[in-house]
């Protein structure tokens, strides 16, 4: 059985956000919820400053705090190492969200995609209502609805349950890559079986010194970061006193 992992090459990543947009459309992610997100930080003092951009998603930890804490096993591990969530079992206690050290789990505080359920025309007498528009293009709730998401979980998760990245398990089981990986124009995301020593992810992890987020917690995240986007040069120096 493969053990899936992702390598994110920070030298290739340009911070375009295509991964996040692709994720939203593939997984019908509602407003305010981010399965694919980023951490940005600015370091130094002007004029010597740098901006760092780290794409984030569920780390599919080997020892996932969300899985350990879920009272109903709604949050569970698949044989492939993917951390999966079953909204049918979720009681909405939000402990997984509370317990996740990476801030990648979100709660559906209200009925998702509320805007697209609105039956009032945007301009009365002039335009269709969001709901009409969605129905006319054959969407389910949202006009850009992706029915493939239903293959392994709810197409759109209901209010009162949490949701998060699933490494696009519905695609991976068909031999396809997660959609964020597919959509990345810079090939900064590399996905594969970490238990296979000749897979691309294994080769890259052998070549570079990777880091993972909050490694000291011992959760064994399976999203690895390699290299750094840093064109800065400096004149050779020994410093001074």
């Amino acid at each position: 059985m493969p053990r899936y992992a992702m390598v994110i090459d920070l030298q290739r990543c340009v911070g375009c956000g295509a991964c996040s947009i692709a994720c939203r459309s593939e997984n019908n992610v509602p407003d305010g919820i981010y399965w694919s997100n980023k951490i940005t930080e600015t370091v130094g003092k002007f004029p010597h400053v740098r901006y760092h951009y780290i794409p984030t998603l569920c780390n599919h930890c080997q020892y996932a705090p969300c899985v350990r804490g879920c009272p109903t096993k709604a949050m569970h591990k698949l044989d492939t190492g993917i951390t999966m969530h079953d909204p049918k079992k979720c009681i909405g206690c939000k402990y997984c969200e509370f317990n996740c050290p990476y801030g990648v789990i979100y709660f559906n505080w209200e009925t998702p995609h509320r805007f697209w359920r609105d039956e009032k025309p945007v301009i009365p007498g002039g335009t269709a209502s969001p709901k009409e528009l969605s129905e006319k293009v054959g969407g389910k709730v949202i006009p850009y609805y992706n029915p493939d998401r239903e293959e392994t979980s709810a197409g759109i998760r209901p209010k009162g349950v949490v949701e998060k990245c699933t490494f696009c398990d519905h695609r991976v089981r068909k031999g396809q890559l997660p959609y964020c990986v597919e959509a990345c124009p810079a090939n900064a995301r590399i996905f594969g079986d970490i238990s296979n020593p000749s897979s691309d992810v294994s080769v890259l992890l052998g070549k570079h010194r990777p880091f993972r987020l909050r490694e000291q917690l011992g959760t064994e995240p399976h999203v690895f970061y390699i290299r750094e986007y840093n064109p800065a040069r400096y004149k050779a120096t020994k410093g001074g006193v």
């Binding site: 804490g69 009272p71 109903t72 096993k73 909405g92 206690c93 349950v161 949490v162």
Partner: peptide, 22 residues
């Protein structure tokens, strides 16, 4: 406080003994 109280049955049907909440 719970988002979906109707799913409470799963506390009994699929208990997670490693969960402090359980």
């Amino acid at each position: 406080e719970l988002g979906t109280v109707t799913h409470m049955i799963y506390i009994m049907l699929s208990p997670n003994l490693s969960s402090p909440i359980w």
